[in-house]
Design a protein around this nucleic acid. Structure first.
Length: 513
RNA sequence: GAUCCCGUAGCUCAGCUGGCAGAGCAUCUGACUUUUAAUCAGAGGGUCCCUGGUUCGAGCCCAGGCGGGAUCACCA
């Protein structure tokens, strides 16, 4: 289906045709890049490289490639800015340094802002002192047929900046070209994951891959996506967590395994939720949740230091210190601190009374675990800015966690809360298969009563536990949430390159509806 | 899902009480060999999100719809 081109697109398509006609390829095959913008600026030494009357003591010859970001044509010479992955460098190009016709008929007429070009020349400093490349040869590597919304910055004021969030998320390629800080966010995200991976590898934990397509889903309270395998004529779920497969590997004799992968939960979208998100899960044999708290602290502190050279980060309006040790406080104590109510040992009805007193919206279907969770989520979690371990959760909320060794009705579980949001979830793993079976049965009961997020009973997982799983500490950490903290991003969509959006409506399709 | 806000040129936005559709950047033509928001002179560019209504007349008022954003609520 053909589309009507805008005026600027018509002009650019015509320019491409003229390049073809002139035997000047609009799409090159390769370009030998010797330097990047940032390194040229760093390495330029005026005493050696600056030409005097056209001759430098040591010529600084470079070959660069990138996108044309601005253009200042002044008759027989021109300046433009070239952007590559490292930054921007100014290029000077003049008629007399190029073969006959290249400047006037090719460069001046047929090269546009947005084109990807290769430049070969030598480095010099202009009268006003800007390090620049004096071009002696150029090729067009990719002609841009659409105009780029490139912004201009003057005295800190920005013109033409793309502010339409939808545009930025849908056409992330454009967002990345025009917003260098977006590229930086994703470079930092990559570095964060690399740091985490080496942190875990150094300790001897093995990175593994477990199924995304699962006949049964489990390991978290969430609604799954469903799909179908044709040849086996079999209903499959996209995983909501890696947990149950990873613990099977602990049974199998791995002492430490981890996986960094996408999980999928069929839930609403928000500033903190994307239906597919990245999770790191780690399981270490012979350890418990106290040990795991030490590891989380050390890992996150390491990441902050590697990324920012400091354990203290600015996140929104707050300065957050990831320096060890983090505060550790049992769930009930944290609630009592904020609300004045000690919930320990309260019956379901007493909890409901407290919740009503605190003016929470509750209903009769909520069990005691859910009520405690509501009170915590409303009065405690949003106010915890500095990283804090909340420990010892009610057993109803944690069907895969081991009973607390001393506290009745609780499990050995913790969450790290930071900037008002849970960052990770961890526990001493339940390894008694009979206890696990009865917890699964409770979940199935919840599911029959209409809880769409209840877990399924996984017989094969129970079979694995029956062979004996060593005591194990388990951890799940939301990579996107951590990336938001580490890059000071307000929305999860700012740390996911291509967040899920409603399908784009075609202009023509919209008309026929 | 609920509430609030938004939709005008390629981009950012203005458009009064309802009275000829505007600016900057970008684009095009011309001048200009160290500019940097280059400068100077000129030009073109619009389904004002869609549908309907009120009106002599709608970008503006009304109704419905579509799309987006922000806030709120649950799992990370």
């Amino acid at each position: 289906m053909s589309r009507e081109y805008s005026e600027q697109e018509v002009i650019r398509r015509d320019a491409r045709a003229q390049l073809d006609a002139a035997g000047f390829p609009p799409y090159g095959y390769s370009w030998d890049v010797t330097h990047h913008a940032a390194s040229i600026i760093d390495d330029f030494d005026e005493t050696l490289h600056q030409p005097v009357e056209g001759v430098a003591k040591v010529p600084f010859r470079v070959s660069v490639a990138g996108r044309v970001m601005s253009m200042r044509i002044m008759g027989k010479a021109a300046f433009f800015n070239l952007q590559d992955q490292s930054g921007r460098i100014q290029v000077y190009i003049s008629r007399d340094d190029l073969p006959e016709g290249y400047y006037n008929t090719i460069f001046k007429k047929l090269v546009d802002i947005g084109d990807v070009i290769g430049i070969e020349g030598f480095v010099f400093k202009t009268r006003v002192g800007e390090t620049s490349v004096h071009a002696q040869r150029f090729e067009i590597l990719a002609k841009a047929l659409r105009p780029l919304p490139i912004e201009k910055e003057v005295d800190g004021k920005v013109f033409n900046e793309i502010t339409d969030k939808e545009y930025r998320y849908r056409q992330r390629y454009v967002d990345l070209v025009v917003h260098p800080e977006v590229r930086k966010t994703f470079q930092q995200r990559a570095r964060m994951i690399t740091t985490m991976r080496s942190f875990l590898d150094e300790r001897g934990y093995v990175e593994v891959e477990t199924p995304v397509l699962q006949p049964l889903y489990g390991g978290a309270a969430a609604r799954p996506f469903t799909t179908r395998h044709n040849a086996l004529d079999m209903k499959l779920y996209l995983r909501i967590a890696d947990e149950l497969y990873l613990k099977r590997l602990i049974v199998g004799g791995f002492d430490g395994v981890y996986e960094i992968s996408k999980d999928f939960r069929n839930e609403g979208l928000s500033r903190f939720h994307n239906p597919e998100f990245t999770m790191m899960e780690l399981y270490v044999a012979y350890k418990d949740y106290n040990w795991m708290m030490d590891l989380v602290e050390e890992m996150v502190e390491t990441i902050a230091t590697v990324l920012h050279g400091s354990t203290d980060l600015t996140v929104g309006d707050n300065t957050i210190s990831f320096a060890r040790p983090w505060k550790r406080i049992p769930l009930f104590e944290a609630i009592e601190e904020k609300t004045g109510h000690d919930l320990s040992g309260l019956s379901r009805d007493d909890l409901a009374t407290v919740a009503k007193k605190l003016e929470l919206d509750i209903d009769d279907t909520m069990g005691s675990g859910k009520l405690i969770d509501e009170i915590f989520g409303e009065f405690v979690e949003p106010h915890m800015i500095q990283p804090t371990f909340i420990t010892d959760y009610p057993i109803e909320l944690s069907p895969l966690a081991k009973k607390h060794r001393t506290k009745e009705g609780l499990v050995e579980r913790f969450e790290a809360i930071c900037n008002g949001k849970a960052l990770c979830n961890a526990f001493s793993e339940l390894n008694d298969p009979d206890d696990q079976r009865s917890r699964f049965e409770d979940q199935v009961g919840l599911g029959m009563r209409g809880d769409a997020e209840a877990m399924q009973l996984d017989e094969d997982y129970l079979r694995a536990l029956e062979y004996g799983m060593p005591p194990t500490a388990g951890l799940g950490i939301g990579i996107d949430r951590l990336a938001m903290l580490m890059t000071n991003s307000r929305s999860i969509r700012d740390v996911i390159l291509f967040p899920l959006l409603r399908p784009e409506v075609e202009e023509s399709a919209a008309e026929t509806e």
